[in-house]
């Protein structure tokens, strides 16, 4: 599903974000990417979504050579994955329904299919009754759930979540964690969750890959957050 081989990312002024990272993630896995701020979690996610390119190394995601991907193929690639962000990244001028539908419209999905999928994913995140609201009318936890629904709408095999609980209190954070866990279990979606929240990691009891200063320092099945 995902294969990273000797990945390094060096920013200008010789700032090393990732240093020779190699990883293998299997289908239907749930992986926590743990580590302090600045450990390289977000950089890793951005490399996986083709927002940035590695300085060195090979990235293979769902059969795409992401390190070599052509700019015009990036939209096609992104339609195969789902992304959830710390700051939700909802479209403020579109309703909840439209935000989710937008992810389907970009791939020219027929109306029938959109009308079938959108209520389904909104129900999965528990927002069936807020379809016609705008993002600024929702709480932070609800906004993040919209963002998850959007990421799921096109039924991706892989869901990438970069600090999705970063802006939420503990209770909301654990709610989101449970939703992701349920998605992994019911839909079989591979999930990579980058977080520095100890409680989130410990509640999941899934594979934990710990990054520190751009290096993988630990990779455990059913791991706990240890720094």
């Amino acid at each position: 599903m995902i294969k990273l081989t000797n990945i390094s990312k060096i920013y200008p002024k010789n700032i090393v974000a990732l240093d020779n990272v190699s990883l293998h993630i299997k289908p239907q896995e749930f992986v926590c990417l743990a580590g302090q701020s600045g450990a390289g979690k977000s950089t890793l996610i951005r490399l996986l979504t083709a927002e940035e390119r590695p300085t060195q190394g090979k990235i293979k995601v769902l059969g795409w050579d992401v390190d070599l991907i052509k700019p015009r193929h990036i939209p096609l690639f992104r339609r195969k994955i789902g992304i959830v962000f710390q700051d939700f990244k909802l479209l403020p001028r579109k309703t909840v329904w439209e935000n989710v539908a937008y992810a389907l419209m970009v791939s020219d999905t027929p109306d029938k299919e959109i009308e079938r999928m959108v209520p389904k994913v909104l129900e999965m995140v528990g927002l069936s009754r807020k379809q016609q609201q705008f993002p600024n009318e929702l709480s932070a936890g609800e906004q993040q759930r919209v963002s998850i629904a959007r990421a799921l709408a096109h039924e991706p095999k892989l869901l990438l979540a970069d600090e999705p609980t970063g802006n939420l209190d503990l209770i909301r954070a654990l709610e989101i964690t449970d939703i992701l866990k349920r998605i992994n279990k019911i839909l079989g979606t591979t999930i990579i969750l980058a977080t520095h929240n100890k409680d989130v990691v410990n509640r999941l009891r899934k594979r934990v890959i710990t990054l520190d200063n751009g290096v993988v320092i630990r990779d455990q099945e059913k791991g706990r957050y240890v720094i």
Binding site: T49, E51, P75, L76, F77, R78, R79, I83, F85, K89, L90, L91, Y102, A103, V106, S107, R150
Partner: peptide, 8 residues
Amino acid sequence: IMKLVGAT
């Protein structure tokens, strides 16, 4: 955001 969601 639109670009990240896969819009051309």
